[in-house]
Design a binder for these strands. Structure first.
Lengths: 348, 348
DNA sequence: GACAACATTGTTAGCGTTAACATACGAGGC
DNA sequence: GCCTCGTATGTTAACGCTAACAATGTTGTC
């Protein structure tokens, strides 16, 4: 089944075997209409016999389209980014695009530029950046060149098209839920202060408190890790021991919430009897913690789909040369509160 | 800074601006020695001025090397695969390779072939498959064509080069640890039975029990999810109520272990007072659960590095035409027991 | 039966790069 | 001064594909 010489077969080999010109082979492969049915079959038989695969490199060279999209991410082992990546991957595959991935080790502008260069070198047609940090988004926005780009969780004001979960709304719902249960206020443990999600959730928390006329206690700054949740949970236990009324905690993500639960348990405090806890993310474990964790669900698959759609729109607009008429798009995916066992009324 | 006509600049544009031939530009870009220092500078200035980037497609066409590696994965949102992927990505980038990713929606042979075709279409030079399932490995092993391939967690006997964590040893250490604490036997909740890791851990568990002369209770089959851990935890509680001596449980992964902890807690059983629990994976949350979870750590970053090294070796061997003299490689990364609060001596 | 319209195929010319060969020039040995 | 050698550059021909055009047949219309 090999072409003369043992090389991997090329179009000309198929053409020779099928007794047609290489252009006819190309037509068959690309599903061009005006080819006789019998010829199509003959060519396909030849393709199968030789085990021919079209050389995508040569095709890309002449069509000027690589069919490759880039994904630039910061930490794909975290729950949110991993889910988003999976969503993008699936959407891209369904749209017939290949996906090339590059991770950032740090968010310095130099690192971002290097990563973007890496993708540009590879002639990606566009790029989705899972860009949860302020500095990263700014570095992206200032990239030279006409690379179509979409930022996931990119915040506002960067001028980039953005897809994000409505973090503010999610946080507000969580806080309102706790206030509605009768808590006089809600404490907050923030995620990594460099992350935009962290900022947005803190903003929603603050706004919900202010709207309800509740006091706004000083928030604590974590780094998303269970360890920081534990440490800051202990800090809150200390404040409570010092007389502060700490009966409800809105934690920036579920991993930190696990650390908080641990700290409360060590201090002999019941959840939700003494203190209520609400997290963010709805990791699969949340429902099976003890107690099960109230949290805010984000539809990452939807984020992935939306960001791909936005990127494809941009690529299309760039190809037709038309400027984006609606300006940089911004699509917001709603978040959804999941009430579970870790939130209840305050102690009397 | 634009080339005539507003096209993206090509080598000839740079050559014209620098007053040299395009081949000299190529020499400068590729760091060829015999170019006068002054010429190098002139060319580099022209490159900067035009914002020129080499067209990787054209280069790949003529060199027959794409510098792209494929990663084929099943579910990259799970902890292990996500970590492994991150490790591979970093190693690939350091080696100057691009990474193209494709996920499998199902592990049917047809799905595997489609995914592999997708990568072959893209002219990847080789492929790493994060292939935790028996059927997937078999489908991979039977792929036609000379694509260099490495399987991560691919089990034995497939004929493919494999990198894996020593699941058996990890499981044995976990079980021996529990037996050493005085438990008369150890129960086991398996992961998804289709996964090789599941099989290997169950094998290690059984072997450790048999070596110690301990009875081997019927294992329970889960699916890695917290929910299945919870359900099977309740089942074990039931067996215990029926008189069976259940004092130690080795759980196939940490997520299921969380469900087990929940089930034990609901039944009023103390951990480790009444029942000891050991998981597998060492997810970041493990240390901060209540109680902190004893588990088995796997160095996924190392797995990523090793698999990339193995693949590059294969690619090199293929290029030089030399058959792999050592046969399909197999590299095993040791696992490591992490003793924490969820394992202790049995009740008297 | 002549002409138009269409369906089917073939021929040619790139896409932007690198490899191979060709050329020009200066330095050094006899 | 002639030849050799090494360095620096230019010229030409691929790589495997698609787009554009050209060249056939094949039908239908009047």
């Amino acid at each position: 089944m090999n072409p003369p010489g043992g090389r991997t077969p090329v179009m000309a080999d198929v053409a020779r075997l099928a007794g047609v010109s290489h252009q006819t082979v190309s037509r068959v492969i690309n599903g061009h209409p005006n080819v006789r049915q019998e010829t199509v079959l003959r060519v396909q038989r030849a393709i199968d016999e030789l085990g021919y695969h079209r050389n995508s490199t040569a095709r890309a060279l002449v069509t000027r389209r690589t069919n490759v999209l880039g994904v630039l991410a910061f930490d794909t082992t975290l729950f949110g980014p991993a889910q988003t990546l999976a969503g993008i991957e699936r959407a891209a595959r369904e749209a017939g695009y290949f996906l090339s991935m590059v991770s950032l080790d740090d968010v310095s502008p130099a690192g971002v530029v290097a990563a973007a260069d890496f993708l540009i070198q590879q002639s990606v047609e566009g790029c989705i950046a899972i860009a949860p940090q302020r500095g990263l988004v700014d570095a992206l926005a200032s990239l030279p060149g006409p690379l179509p780009l979409v930022a996931v969780e990119g915040g506002e004001g960067s001028g980039l098209p953005v897809v994000c979960v409505d973090q503010v709304q999610g946080a507000e719902e969580a806080v309102r839920h706790l206030l509605a249960l009768g808590h006089h206020t809600v404490h907050h443990i923030e995620g990594d202060p460099l992350w935009l999600e962290s900022e947005a959730r803190a903003f929603g928390w603050r706004r919900a408190l202010e709207e309800a006329g509740a006091p706004v206690p000083e928030p604590l700054q974590g780094d998303w890790s269970p360890r920081s949740g534990y440490d800051l949970g202990r800090a809150l236990v200390g404040r409570r021991a010092a007389g502060e009324r700490v009966t409800a905690i809105f934690v920036g993500n579920d991993q930190m919430a696990i650390g908080v639960l641990r700290a409360l348990h060590e201090a002999g405090l019941g959840v939700p009897g003494d203190v209520s806890v609400v997290g963010f993310d709805d990791i699969p474990e949340a429902e099976y913690l003890t107690p099960s964790l109230s949290t805010v669900y984000q539809d990452f698959a939807q984020v992935g789909r939306e960001s791909l759609a936005l990127l494809l729109g941009e690529i299309g607009a760039g190809r037709t040369g038309s400027a984006d008429p609606a300006g940089a798009g911004r699509r917001v995916v709603p978040a959804e509160l999941r009430q579970r066992g870790s939130s209840g009324p305050p102690p009397p």
